[in-house]
Design a protein around this nucleic acid. Structure first.
Lengths: 236, 236
DNA sequence: CCGGATATCCTTACGCCATAAAGAGTTGCC
DNA sequence: GGCAACTCTTTATGGCGTAAGGATATCCGG
């Protein structure tokens, strides 16, 4: 990545090593000052711990600092601001995804696996689905996930345009479904006006139908939608 | 809906008419006080105007009040808090969607239309995709949109489980794709490490391929994914 | 061993935010 | 007229991100 808000940037004179471990410590002969007590990695870990445990609403620079026994301002030595920290968190979360599985001819199983891994990752870190849009480019882990999906779909030998469509559909579907599941609002449509059934007859009918499994409803819905999608890919 | 934080609620003694026009003014014989200079509707409209124009980052109770020539606190007479206002904004935005089209046997065209309407609506109001998860239930406009989709899909005569999957896939795909388009980050993956092509060969290959239309790339990607999805529904 | 440079980390402060509390002014019913 | 109900304002509280500046620790060249 190397976003490099280096010391040349007059706007951000702090933050000597933003974003990368700065190969060695040999930038200039000048290195001095007290040993760093923190690191970008440690801050990102603490930040993810806060977001996972307390939710995004309770996430703040102060909260992250506190978890590390520092003040909020101490973080600014390592990270230029909250937005950049969020971007690092995002990519770190996606880095939990497994590397591309060894090539298999069963693209359907491979794609299913990919989708379920990503879905589970989003549910482990639901705050990812709520990050602000500022980041200018995809992070390395997100790129790796895309590459992984392409590798899973390779045996299907789709035409390029079709492949683009399939990737977009899978990626966005998983994200949307995870967002729906995470916002437990889900499809809670009871307790409404008394004329609910009148206004929404088809919804009511679908609702009354002997649904799928009783528990784990969200997971079931996710898999059902995924199956439809994969059928579409298969139909190419 | 009738969420009714009525005067009986000790926690919210204000906000006499939250969420519905309160059929007439006949709640109790007691009505008095100055004529309301605002209304929930006017506030929601102003709030949407602010969010559309300035983006969610600049959205605040103060900003909405200012647009109406009032202070932030004046809004609290009509709306119990920011979260509830956001929920109303969400539903109002989705209320722009057209009512169910007259029944047509071409479910594919009908579903495509539904998806494009929703996609366009999200792009008109991208802040909708970024709302906090608090709301406990779907709003009436969102329910109407679902009913509309069911009506579009009716001629396909899907089995209930399959129908559920198709609805979930379409809904979440449109939402995810809109979010990706709105965060103009899109798929910006250039300007990276020099070994980009090495690390991500499949991505690089797909990228090099003579893509679809030159302009309107997002819309193209959206339609391609949608086509895959609809093929999946057709394969039932 | 000693300055000076450089780095980490802290305190303080500013201008935002949502919203609680209390009061001023307006209106309609008795 | 009096009073209750209502709208809207002012003020205040406790949070936020982060700019600014200072204390302190560490290293380097002398």
């Amino acid at each position: 990545m190397t976003v490099h808000a280096g010391p040349g940037d007059p706007h951000r004179p702090r933050a000597p090593r933003w974003d990368a471990p700065e190969p060695s410590r040999a930038g200039r002969g000048a290195r001095s000052g007290p040993k760093p007590g923190l690191s970008v990695d440690a801050i990102v870990s603490a930040a993810i711990a806060v977001a996972d445990a307390e939710g995004m609403a309770a996430f703040s620079m102060r909260a992250v600092g506190e978890r590390l026994g520092r003040t909020a301002m101490a973080l600014y030595t390592y990270v230029p601001g909250k937005d950049e920290l969020l971007a690092l968190m995002h990519d770190r979360a996606l880095a939990e995804l497994p590397p591309p599985a060894p090539r298999s001819d069963d693209w359907r199983a491979a794609a299913t696996d990919w989708a379920e891994q990503l879905y589970a990752c989003y549910l482990r870190h639901p705050w990812v689905l709520r990050l602000p849009p500022a980041r200018p480019a995809l992070g390395p882990a997100e790129l790796a996930a895309l590459e992984s999906l392409l590798s899973a779909l390779a045996p299907a030998a789709l035409a390029p345009a079709r492949l683009r469509g399939a990737v977009a559909a899978l990626r966005q579907y998983v994200r949307g479904a995870a967002a729906a599941t995470a916002d437990a609002s889900g499809d809670q449509l009871d307790g409404f006006a008394p004329d609910f059934a009148e206004h929404f007859p088809l919804l009511t009918a679908l609702r009354r139908d002997p649904g799928g499994a009783p528990g784990n409803e969200d997971g079931e819905a996710f898999r059902a939608g995924l199956a439809v999608l994969l059928d579409g890919i298969a139909a190419s």
